[in-house]
Amino acid sequence: MGGEGGQGVQTAADILAQAAFEEGKEALYIPNFGIEQRGGVSLAFVQIGANPVGSPKFDQAHLVVALSARSLERLQDYLHEGSTLLYDSSLLAPPEVSDSVVGWQAYDTIAPEAFAERRLTDRRQKFPRITKKVHKILGLPAGEMASSRLHPRVSNIIVLGAAARLIEIVRLEEVKKALEKRLANKIRRDPKLKELNYKALELGWEAADRMLKGREAGAAV
C-alpha cells in the first residue's frame, strides 16, 4: 500500500493487519520508513496467512493499493500476473488502456451515484506506465467519495474498506473492531468519529463488493 506522507497509508495498512490478527490469522505489518517525518512517499507492507509469516518483506503482492503516482512507481516491482491494483481514481487519472499492454484482463472504474455527477478535477496525477501484466486494475474515487459524502480525511478508510473486501480474508466486523482500537484515542476525544469511520469503511467495502460482483456476473470488460 503506498501514498504520499499524510494520506493515511500506514494507518490503513496497520488496521488491515490488526483485523487479520483479530480474525485469528497470522499477520505482519511493516512500514517503509525513511528520514522524512512528512512529505515523502509512504509505503506499507502487510502479509496475512494461516502460518507465521516468513520474511517481513516479499517479492510479489496479491493486492497493491496506490494513492499517488510516485508511490505506484515504487510499488511496480511488487506487481505480477495475479496482482490486483487498486488506486484512488480521484487522485490518479485512469490509465489509458494501450493495445501494447497485453494481459490486462480487466479495467474497472467505479463511479458511485454521488460521485458520478461531479466533474473530476483535471489536476489528477498522470497514471504511471505499468510495464507488468496484472490480473486487474480497479479505480476507486475514494477522495471524491470522502469529500462529497463524508469528510475528506476518511478517504484512506474508504480505501481500507475496499482493500479489506478485495483480499477476501477478513470480515467487515473485524476491520471495524481493529479500526476502533487503532483510533481509540481520537474516538475518545470525538465520539462522532467512530460512526464516520465506520461509514467510510462500509462505503469502501460495498464499492469493492460491487466491483467483485460485477466481475463475477461477467459485466466488466
Binding site: F21, Y29, I30, F33, V53, K57
Partner: peptide
Amino acid sequence: DGYQAKMREP
C-alpha cells in the same frame, strides 16, 4: 534490527 523494531506481528 529496524525491521524487527518497526514491524507489527503476533
